[in-house]
Design a protein around this nucleic acid. Structure first.
Lengths: 220, 220
DNA sequence: CGGCGGCTGTCACCCCACTGTCACCTACGG
DNA sequence: CCGTAGGTGACAGTGGGGTGACAGCCGCCG
């Protein structure tokens, strides 16, 4: 199991290094954000243990890039002050788990193991079309390396379209699949959601209209 | 499994050729982009292994055309420098997978197999005639590598004609099949739709008139 | 508690692709 | 040479779909 530890506080970094090695993991160290990104570009890691407060490139940014880069690595965030609020923030960035400092070393090990056991979400790139990738499990959508900020409904609609793999999906199908069964057949909400999605997806357009048949996702 | 290898470096091309044949694949070679496009026009391949740096027509361009051509082939791009960024670029063109040189031959084989296993979204091209292909499920019509932009009625009429497999279809049949039953028997709309279809299909003509009997689709 | 901001859904409105009709032309067959 | 079937070009109405603005809802935060 390959683990990358990103931690600027040298004492803690070294102790994690030796501790995790003793647990049988292959550990690399990065002392700041840019070093972390370098290593990530050349090596595959199962888990990245990421301090949130980093000099230079901030931990949040590193996390964003890891998720966007689709390397398949799981991210475990370490943070100083551990309010629930921040925990949510961290997960919102695409981190897979979150551990407030100070933490118990055994707990860290347990969580790393748990993450590594997870069916590596990125191995089958889940759903993709052109440069758009979407991970339903993590609720993360990325286009061209940039994380998309989608609302729940938008995400669900996009998931439906991608699931159809190039076949057009009618407004009725979307209503049924995304909204609950009590769907007003005359609602215009699908139109609107599609429009908002198109704006967020940007250029070149990926969602195409098939008159009388619905919407189809595809590069051309 | 049919594989097309597009690679200008002859030594590598030959070695891929023999190696993949040994794995039980049917392999064709193309030494540059234009040769690749020629072969793709005449033969269906499950997977195209495509070197990105090609003399003449660049690999990116070939990739674009394959995707646009809707042949159902999967594309595996080979490239020299393999940063994450470029990987994204490659996928953005519609490639299905990406392998940086130098690569391990076994990995190449594994990836080709994985691609071929994917539910090739276009597996049943369903209806075709000459260089015209029409996929009712995806609502896509392609002629000679170019997507056709058909209106719903035009698409439906074409579907009817192709379904008849070369037998002539009368205007009455079309009225019944495409328009709903409340069809004015004296309408001239079929004539018009056929005309518009002919224009969009281009040359050589595929829709032929059988006097007193209707319209027939066929290469001759 | 009250204001704020994001998410949803509705509405009114616009636009143009699609469709059908008509008047006219052409081609073919007898 | 005529009659009829089919082809052509132009035109108008329609409705499917896009757009922008707005209002209710809710969670968050001061």
């Amino acid at each position: 199991m390959r683990v990358l530890v990103v931690e600027d506080f040298v004492v803690l970094a070294r102790s994690l290094d030796t501790g995790l090695r003793r647990e049988g993991m292959a550990v690399d160290l990065a002392l700041d954000g840019s070093e972390a990104l370098e290593r990530l570009a050349s090596t595959r890691y199962d888990v990245v243990v990421l301090d949130r407060d980093l000099p230079g490139v901030h931990g949040d940014e590193v996390c964003r890039r890891i998720v966007a880069g689709d390397s398949g690595s799981r991210v475990l965030m370490l943070t100083a002050a551990g309010t629930v609020r921040q925990r949510v923030d961290g997960l919102g960035l695409g981190a897979d788990d979150y551990l407030p400092k100070p933490f118990d070393f055994d707990e860290l090990v347990a969580r790393i193991r748990a993450l590594a056991r997870r069916p590596s979400a990125a191995l089958p790139p889940v759903l993709e079309c052109g440069d758009l990738r979407l991970d339903p499990a993590r609720r993360v959508a990325v286009r061209g390396g940039n994380r998309l900020d989608l609302s729940p409904k938008e995400f669900a609609v996009l998931e439906c379209l991608l699931g159809a793999a190039g076949r057009p999906v009618s407004a009725e199908d979307l209503l049924e699949g995304v909204w609950d069964e009590a769907a007003d057949p005359f609602t215009t909400t699908v139109k609107t959601t599609i429009r908002r999605l198109r704006v967020k997806l940007g250029d070149p357009p990926l969602i195409h209209t098939v008159r009388e048949a619905g919407y189809r996702i595809g590069v051309a």
